[in-house]
């Protein structure tokens, strides 16, 4: 479906202090794809996400969601289609209860309160925290906060989910839970992360960014296994693809 594609054309962005964070980037993400965006610290991942969401506007080039350009005028439409989960759930959760927080987005779109309730309960069910709906967000554990932050975005029923480091600072079990959750979503997914094992499991396609430019774009299984490329971009081959630290045997399923 063409209206679900996300296209970045010749995108550049320079911060007011002169730092060029994104440098002539172009790619297309199609409906239903799950794409990992990886790169070392300061490579421009977060800036790219903010540009996609229309929080920042490019100094050159454009972002298109379907056939719509991301401009100030089209923002309400864009933001209904793209849902972004921030890296720190504390930035995202600011209402007094989880319920109100998840309802914040739908209410901003002036939905009927019945519909808002449906959506809130549905989103909370999807992430498995409906029992926490009346709790205060700041009292939740890290994993629960993350789930709540994801629910706040799901309630807007976006076509595309954009996530900044969805598994950062989670314990292994919570991380696994979030990963299973992400795998279950049929949305188009764009995930930035340093958790390359997570990217390896969830994303079919990976875009590697280096100093604001695309260093590689292709199948995750090929890109993340390319030791030379990973090394040149300040990354490492995912642990799952590395030799066993005990017996030294190579993994077979590469």
């Amino acid at each position: 479906m063409s209206h679900h594609k996300l296209e970045v054309k010749n995108l550049s962005f320079t911060y007011p202090d002169g730092h060029k964070a994104i440098n002539e980037m172009s790619f297309i993400i199609h409906h239903g794809e799950s794409v990992g965006i990886v790169g070392e610290n300061g490579a421009g991942k977060s800036t790219l996400l903010l540009l996609l969401m229309g929080v920042l506007f490019p100094s050159q080039g454009e972002v298109m969601v379907g056939d719509v350009h991301v401009t100030k005028k089209t923002l309400p439409l864009i933001r209904q289609r793209l849902g972004m989960v921030f890296q720190d759930p504390d930035d995202q959760l600011f209402m007094t209860t989880v319920y109100d927080d998840v309802a914040f987005g739908p209410r901003n779109y002036r939905l009927d309160e019945k519909e808002v309730e449906n959506r809130v309960m549905q989103s909370l069910d999807m992430v498995g925290i409906s029992h926490l709906k009346d709790r205060a967000p700041y009292k939740l554990s890290g994993g629960e906060k993350r789930a709540a932050a994801i629910a706040t975005v799901l309630s807007m029923q976006p076509d595309v989910l954009i996530m900044d480091e969805p598994t950062s600072s989670l314990d292994p079990k919570s991380r696994r839970r979030v990963m299973e959750l992400l795998k279950g979503f049929e949305h188009t997914k764009i995930i930035t992360s340093h958790d390359l094992d997570m990217v390896f499991e969830i994303c079919k396609r990976t875009i590697v960014i280096k100093a604001g430019k695309i260093a590689a774009d292709g199948l995750t299984s090929e890109i993340l296994a390319d030791e030379e490329l990973m090394d040149a971009c300040g990354l490492e081959v995912p642990l799952a693809l590395q030799s066993c630290p005990v017996c030294g045997s190579k993994k077979k399923n590469i």
Binding site: P76, D100, R107, N108
Partner: peptide, 14 residues
């Protein structure tokens, strides 16, 4: 984070 969820200046308590 508020803007991204459609915040336009009106605070709706629903």
């Amino acid at each position: 984070a508020m803007c991204v969820r459609g915040f336009t200046g009106e605070y709706n308590t629903g």
